[in-house]
Design a protein around this nucleic acid. Structure first.
Length: 569
DNA sequence: GCCGGTAGCCAC
DNA sequence: AAACGTGGCTACCGGC
């Protein structure tokens, strides 16, 4: 969203490439103005009978779209293809890919523009140099494509590419371009208030410790707490790799009540995290041209099929604490618009119920029950109406643990219960949900035997070494990853289908809402106020019907003028 | 000044 | 802090 167009390299086959210099400093375009050149490109770049392929096409799409050009149809992206073939690939960059797959040594970009402070723009280089570099890029893509296509067919991933990932690409690009509005004065006011509170907390801590130090330094804080104040570390082994006693929130929580500074440090940590990561950082990310924040969605950034968001990451905006929720209130709708949020309810557990074909779990979802309460009722042997909050909380921990490939040990830690209790709960759980038990055993076996696991739509994650692993820790870790991947990945598949279908569905219905964010199980749209109800109904329909399971895909919709205060529809 | 590792923590 | 999955960002800190 910040780049400008310097030139365009195109090729129809290896050896045919050419380069159009469009934005070089004082050179090029001797015959045409930039506007004329862009106008001449408009039709061929959009020509339906001429498929476009490339590497990291979302980047090209965003830059071209900002210059008034919409490349289409986009049929093959070698970066996405490599990632689909192996989501753990470390060769997603074109230069790496060319080397490992074609033995082609490509010139690193630093060799042209340098790096660090002295880095220059492509626009400042001689045109022939840039032309050679850019043409190599497009020709290598054409050389890589047939091999990747064959491999995807072999691995039965070609339909994932054609039906999901390639259609998703322009959807993500449009979301990035749309961006989201931010209430900067609101955040600035918040920043001042946080500064005051942080300074007060810091003073209180310094007075207790007897001297000032850098409260943001875990090492200095460790010294202060466990040496100067003589607080007893809860566990001799709780030292970090650097030899200091850990000061993590977990540890500090367990020390509450032992010394007043502990509460102050915890509050300081919470507030300084929010201030530095969100309150102060987000306003700096507002694009001066659009006045909005444009995240970058990485389509190849996870091993499970999820998206990742960066610069800034808008998939980890706080919500759980009250001050955190305040940050979310800074994300606002444009004038005359509202934000529409739609999220899948318990999608991962529904996927487990479906894939495990567990009759008890399927029945709970069919009955529309609160799944954690229903789980508690099952494992504690009480009627669902008499499940208390502690039972529900423990059942919820087990359900989460299930998705993460839990061990009783991990559960005991997370749910704050003894190991023996955790073992009892897990045993009761599997007795009540035998289909789930059988499913987990099956996934572990398949991961080892065939060397991969896959989602309902065939997205694979490979575990080539699992069969031979003798290291217990390593083996258990890979088994947990193998259990989690099909669950998390199927949820990712499903919301991607909804995202691909939503824009044409909105267009057909004559509605002008735009997708602006995706947060794994949630979509956020910016919607004209007057169109809220029909849009909400359509979004709910498209999401719920994206991929029919044995249980309904329940979708909750909410709206608000900001992302922090949303009310159900 | 740049880079990478570490500690810690935000989200789903 | 850890044998419970997937990510990204900030501050610190030491090396170059």
């Amino acid at each position: 969203m910040r780049a400008s167009l310097v030139g365009l390299a195109l090729a129809t086959q290896p050896g045919s490439g050419f380069y159009l210099p469009l934005g070089h400093q004082g050179e090029g375009l001797t015959q045409l103005t930039l506007e004329q050149a862009l106008e001449a490109l408009r039709r061929p770049l959009g020509e339906a009978n001429t498929p476009k392929v490339g590497h990291n096409l979302k980047y090209d799409y965003v830059v071209l779209k900002r210059h008034g050009l919409t490349p289409a149809p986009l049929t093959f992206d070698t970066m996405i293809a490599e990632w689909l073939s192996n989501p753990a690939s470390r060769n997603l960059g074109l230069k790496n890919l060319a080397w490992v797959r074609q033995n082609i040594k490509m010139t690193p970009i630093e060799e042209l523009i340098g790096k660090g402070k002295k880095q220059r723009s492509m626009a400042d280089l001689p045109i022939p140099l840039v032309a050679a570099y850019a043409v190599a890029d497009v020709e290598v893509v054409l050389r890589l494509m047939p091999e990747l296509e064959r491999e995807l067919e072999e691995r039965q991933a070609i339909s994932l590419l054609r039906e999901i990932e390639m259609p998703l690409l322009p959807v993500l690009a449009e979301m990035e371009i749309a961006g989201v509005a931010l209430d900067v004065p609101f955040l600035q006011q918040m920043s001042l208030a946080l500064s005051e509170r942080l300074a007060a907390l810091e003073q209180q801590v310094f007075e207790q410790v007897g001297q000032p130090f850098n409260l943001n330094s875990p090492q200095q804080l460790s010294e202060a707490l466990f040496k100067k104040l003589g607080i007893a570390p809860p566990d001799r082994s709780a030292k970090t790799a650097t030899g200091f006693y850990s000061t993590s929130a977990d540890i500090l929580e367990s020390l509450r009540g032992q010394h007043p500074v502990v509460d102050w440090v915890l509050e300081y940590r919470e507030l300084s995290k929010l201030k530095s990561t969100y309150v102060d950082a987000l306003p700096l990310q507002v694009n001066p041209l659009t006045g909005r924040v444009h995240t970058s969605f990485s389509q190849t950034g996870s091993v499970t099929g999820r998206l990742a968001s960066s610069d800034p990451n808008l998939q980890n905006i706080p919500i759980r604490s009250e001050v955190g929720r305040q940050v979310r209130r800074a994300f606002i709708a444009a004038p005359e618009h509202v934000l529409l949020g739609a999220d899948y309810s318990q999608i991962e557990l529904r996927i487990v119920a479906h894939m495990a074909d567990d009759q008890n779990m399927l029945a709970a979802f069919h009955a529309g029950q609160d799944i954690h309460a229903a789980t508690a009722a099952a494992i504690f042997g009480v009627p669902i109406e008499s499940v208390d909050s502690q039972q529900r909380r423990r059942a919820k921990a087990i359900n989460f643990g299930l998705i993460y490939g839990m061990s009783p040990y991990g559960l005991s830690r997370y749910a704050d219960i003894t190991l023996a209790e955790a073992e009892d709960f897990v045993e009761a759980y599997f007795r009540q949900f035998p289909g789930v038990k059988a499913y987990l055993d099956r996934v572990r076996r398949l991961a080892a035997e065939q060397g991969y696991v896959e989602t309902l739509l065939g997205r694979r994650r490979y575990f080539p070494a699992l069969k031979h692993l003798t290291d217990r820790n390593q083996r258990n870790r890979e088994e947990r990853e193998a259990i989690n991947a099909p669950i998390q990945g199927t949820a990712a598949d499903i919301i991607k289908i909804a995202m691909v279908r939503l824009p044409p569905a909105l267009r057909s219905a004559g509605l002008s809402a735009r997708l602006i964010l995706q947060v794994h199980d949630e979509l956020v749209l910016e919607c004209p106020q007057a169109e809220l109800h029909p849009t909400a109904a359509l979004v709910q329909e498209v999401m719920s019907q994206a991929y029919p399971l044995k249980v309904p895909l329940s979708t909750d919709v909410r709206w608000g003028v900001n992302w922090g205060d949303m009310q159900p529809l």
